[in-house]
């Protein structure tokens, strides 16, 4: 069993990623650490608790940073709906919130399971940076970090910066300094925007996915409207889901297009939050990131349907949607 800790700010796309991990037979989600980002910390924490209840999963939520190290904004606004989960009514148990802080939880868990813990960081990475500041030696014993953020050739919150990293550029910089010791895989906008989940896909999920399919469909509608309005996509980009699927099966990205490179983060000026990735290795600096730049979008979506809804649905997806 792979041991996973989520560091997240749910968020619709976070919810997709978390549910997928919880559905995977070989993955144990040990805990969910929350951070402010898509919404304020109270919202993201309750949303994480709601997901645990929804999936009837055995783990707890660990509340993390309320502010980024370099505070630039409050949250991602209306993209994720008023409550951050598309307004879908969900309940939660108070008992699923631990009294341990996110940073301590991460450090304790890594200490107890050296070189076994994988972190799926799909929000701003403030908690990771704080944990590194507190105990870098322990953090070096993380098995791997899969992080959704950044981009090599594009941004979203600015022309060059992606939201998660822009939200806490300083923390991002500090996280990637760990990349020399711990493999960090960056799932950036270059490939998330090549993996559009179309409305055909979503309607298919609604038709074949039963109750959970209907719920995931209802949840994502604000996204669909936002992506049409701002990007003219007939569908949406579920960034964090791609990060999760890649963590599950790296072959969704062709091996030759995964670059092991040196990455720097801009922490000042108009480029704040931008990831500068030396793909061609002109700087000859130590390599601290794996960046996939191509993705097999059909394989990605098929895997999602297979993990969450089963082989039969995936088969139908191949037959009716992909062909």
């Amino acid at each position: 069993m792979r041991k996973i800790i989520f560091d997240t700010d749910p968020g619709i796309d976070d919810a997709y990623a978390i549910i997928t991990a919880m559905k995977h037979p070989d993955i144990k989600v040990l805990g969910i650490c929350t951070v402010a980002g898509n919404k304020g910390i109270e919202f993201t924490t309750t949303n994480a608790q709601k997901l645990i209840k929804l999936m009837n999963y055995d783990c707890q939520v660990y509340k993390g940073a309320k502010d980024s190290l370099l505070k630039v904004a409050d949250d991602a606004g209306a993209t994720h709906g008023i409550d951050g989960l598309g307004g879908v009514p969900l309940v939660y148990d108070k008992s699923s919130l631990s009294s341990i802080s996110a940073v301590d939880y991460i450090l304790n868990t890594v200490k107890e399971n050296p070189n076994e813990i994988e972190i799926i960081a799909i929000g701003p990475v403030t908690n990771i940076a704080l944990a590194i500041r507190k105990d870098k030696e322990t953090m070096k014993k993380i098995k791997a970090i899969y992080t959704m953020g950044g981009g090599v050739y594009r941004g979203n919150i600015t022309p060059v910066a992606e939201f998660n990293y822009w939200y806490d550029a300083q923390a991002t910089k500090e996280m990637f300094e760990l990349g020399v010791d711990v493999p960090i895989h960056m799932i950036g906008l270059d490939i998330t925007h090549k993996s559009i989940v179309t409305n055909n896909d979503l309607e298919f999920m609604k038709m074949t996915g039963g109750e959970l399919g209907q719920l995931l469909y209802d949840m994502i509608l604000p996204y669909v409207e936002a992506y049409w309005k701002f990007s003219k996509y007939t569908g949406c980009v579920i960034h964090d889901l791609l990060c999760m699927i890649y963590a599950i099966d790296q072959t969704v990205c062709p091996k030759e297009a995964i670059y092991h490179s040196h990455l720097e983060v801009s922490t000042t000026g108009i480029t704040i939050g931008q990831t500068v990735v030396d793909i061609v290795d002109s700087w000859k600096q130590p390599k601290n990131v794996y960046v996939p730049l191509k993705v097999d979008e059909n394989k990605y979506k098929e895997l999602f349907f297979k993990i969450v809804f089963g082989e039969e649905v995936a088969e139908m997806y191949r037959k009716y949607v992909l062909s």
Partner: peptide, 12 residues
């Protein structure tokens, strides 16, 4: 008409 078509009609 695909779901994408119908979504377009809904959105615009």
């Amino acid at each position: 008409f695909s779901a994408n078509d119908f979504w377009f009609i809904r959105l615009e």
